[in-house]
Amino acid sequence: MPMNLIHRRLCRSDGWVRGVRETLMPWTLDGVDLGDDVLEIGPGFGATTRVLVDKVPRLTAVEVDPASVKLLTGQFPSVTVIEADGAELPLLDNSFSAVTCFTMLHHVPSPAEQDRLFAETFRVLRPQGLFVGLDSRPNLRFRFIHLFDTMIVVDPDTLPRRLEAVGFRDVEIAMTETRFRFRARKP
């Protein structure tokens, strides 16, 4: 979803890529087996994709922004990149061992749209598949970076109920002062 110029520069920076690789992804994926066929929703400029591509045998990325789709396709020839909305996935039911989304839920334009993304995630996961992700908790820096962006913050306290409402079980949330990770399983 729309991002201002400062935000776009930050997400393309070497510092962000390094932080994703060295801090965010290890914390988010600690102890998680993603399986053999993973879907990443909303990879943007691909910082998280760089980590996932070396961790899983098959990776599909769904990205709504056409420019990012072109960038991802050029950077990651082994990844299937699809231009689509995460709330309307053009994918078959029960297809993936895991679905991931990292630092992108707050760019989904409404809670209702976020819930549709959760329902679509549930639909495309295989039984026993995992939904794994990371997002931000609001603070002054986060709000500044997102001036004039789409920014609908996900409340980690209500996220378990929202995920359970579409069918997920075994929902786990872990938080730091600025971020939270989540894990949920399709029964």
Rank of each mutant, 00 (worst) to 15 (best):
L125G: 02
V153P: 08
T158G: 04
D33H: 11
E164M: 10
T49K: 04
T80R: 15
A165V: 01
G86C: 06
V153I: 14
V17N: 07
C11G: 09
S13C: 03
F122M: 11
T103Q: 12
G129P: 04
R116A: 03
P90G: 11
E88G: 06
V51P: 00
R12W: 05
E22I: 00
K70F: 12
R181L: 13
F168N: 03
L105D: 08
C11H: 14
R181S: 12
K70L: 15
L29C: 04
D30F: 06
C11A: 13
G35Y: 06
P90L: 09
R58V: 04
V20W: 09
G46F: 09
D33L: 01
V64H: 14
A112E: 15
F142I: 08
S68I: 01
R183T: 05
F102N: 08
L134T: 09
V132D: 10
P90K: 10
F131V: 05
P90V: 11
V124D: 08
V53N: 02
I173F: 04
E164K: 09
T176A: 05
Q128G: 10
L92V: 10
D33M: 04
L5S: 13
L140E: 13
L71R: 12
L147C: 08
R123Y: 04
I41E: 02
M3Y: 15
F102I: 07
T158E: 11
V17D: 10
N4D: 12
R141Q: 14
L89Q: 04
L117Y: 03
F148N: 13
R12Y: 01
R181M: 03
L5G: 00
T158F: 05
R185Q: 10
R9K: 15
D33R: 07
M25F: 11
M151R: 06
I173C: 02
R8C: 05
R179Q: 13
V108R: 02
I82S: 06
G46E: 05
F180I: 00
F102A: 01
F45V: 08
K55R: 15
G31D: 10
S110M: 04
A119S: 12
D14H: 10
L5R: 14
R161A: 15
L29A: 06
F142P: 00
I41D: 02
T48G: 14
L59W: 03
T23I: 11
V38E: 02
T23C: 08
L24I: 13
A98D: 09
V64N: 13
D93I: 01
L52A: 00
A112N: 10
R137M: 14
E88T: 09
Q75A: 13
F118W: 12
V79C: 06
L29H: 00
R183F: 00
